[in-house]
Simulated scan of single mutants.
Amino acid sequence: MPMNPAVQAVIKAITRLQPDVANSWNSQRKVEDAAGKLTIADPRCRIDKITATADDGYEIPLRVFTPLDIDFSLKRGLHVNEDHRGTILYLHGGGWANGDVEFYSDACMRTALKLERRVIAVDYRRSPEHRFPTALEDCYAVARQLFAGTLIRDADPGRIVLMGDSAGGNLTAAVSLLARERGDFRPRTQILLYPLVYNDHSETTLFDSVRDNGEDYILTRQAIVDYIELYLRTPADFHDSRFAPLIATSLADLPRTLVITAEYDPLRDEGEAFAARLDAEGNEVACFRMNDGVHGYFLYPSVLSLVRDTYRLIAHFLDGDPLPKPGDRPWLTLLGTD
């Protein structure tokens, strides 16, 4: 559907003002660091700092967001108890070079409270200082320890959900593929928000959304190319399914999956193609496109309907409630929701 012309003009202007990624990734980190320090803690969510050890000995910083049940009475006083129904391992976006747990703190607190689940955010090592597959192996190491019960002892493996947005969605899908191949653990559920899962974002790519949405909607085609160049170590990595899960020989026997794409995102079509392949190869999958959405909208204030509706959709998926049917607004159902 056409975007409101006034909104489109504003988004286009913002997009044109953005510096190129290749020369500004470090400056963007500084802006995000400043923004992260402005996050206001919610008393209903406890935040703890822990670490997990990577295979090379590096201590991976983690942030744990635990929703709390706060009860006060004159007779009993104040009582605070943990109140969660599972654990979400959250892998943040930012093109593998930007974003961190500080910048994502507000989104992680909100996710913990709205979904009533403990959230563990991974501060994986970023590019270009640490190139592929370092970020993936960091995330895999954390997931392995979480499922083994050595990271947080009360985490029920059957209630652990892998979740990520954008580059974090890429890492989430890749962790699930690695778990299937290595056999260390088997996640049951994953949630991918507008993920990057393919390797070709040139002007001749298979996917129309790269061409249609690649200039004026916040995330540009050139920015995607630049982020990938900062991330990959060798030309051979470009053809590695750990980087581009959509090119994997098989996508069978993977977790129950929710894929959410955004209408005006250049990554829209590849995310939907990934969901379609998961469905075709026998996995349980639901895929929704958020009308009027642009890449990164999940980090926007929760008063926006797109964000509220996304949380509602995720909650239905996690809780096993009926999902929207074709034609329901604001979601366009694509497949796998019968």
Rank of each mutant, 00 (worst) to 15 (best):
N4C: 08
V7W: 00
T15P: 11
P19N: 12
V21H: 02
S24Q: 02
W25T: 00
S27A: 14
E32M: 14
A34P: 00
D55R: 15
G57C: 10
L62R: 06
P67H: 05
F72S: 07
R85D: 10
R85Q: 11
R85K: 13
G93S: 02
A97Y: 06
D100P: 07
A107M: 04
M109L: 09
K114F: 10
H130Y: 13
R131S: 02
F132C: 00
A141M: 02
V142G: 05
L146Y: 05
G149I: 09
P157K: 14
D165V: 06
A174I: 03
S176L: 04
S176I: 04
P187R: 08
P187Y: 00
P187S: 11
R188V: 02
I191K: 03
I191L: 06
L192N: 07
Y194R: 05
N213C: 08
D226W: 11
T234A: 15
T234N: 15
V259Y: 02
E272K: 08
F274Y: 15
D279T: 08
F288C: 07
D292V: 00
S302L: 02
V303W: 14
Y311V: 05
D321R: 15
D321I: 00
D321S: 14
P322L: 12
P326H: 14
L332M: 12
L334T: 04
T337Y: 03
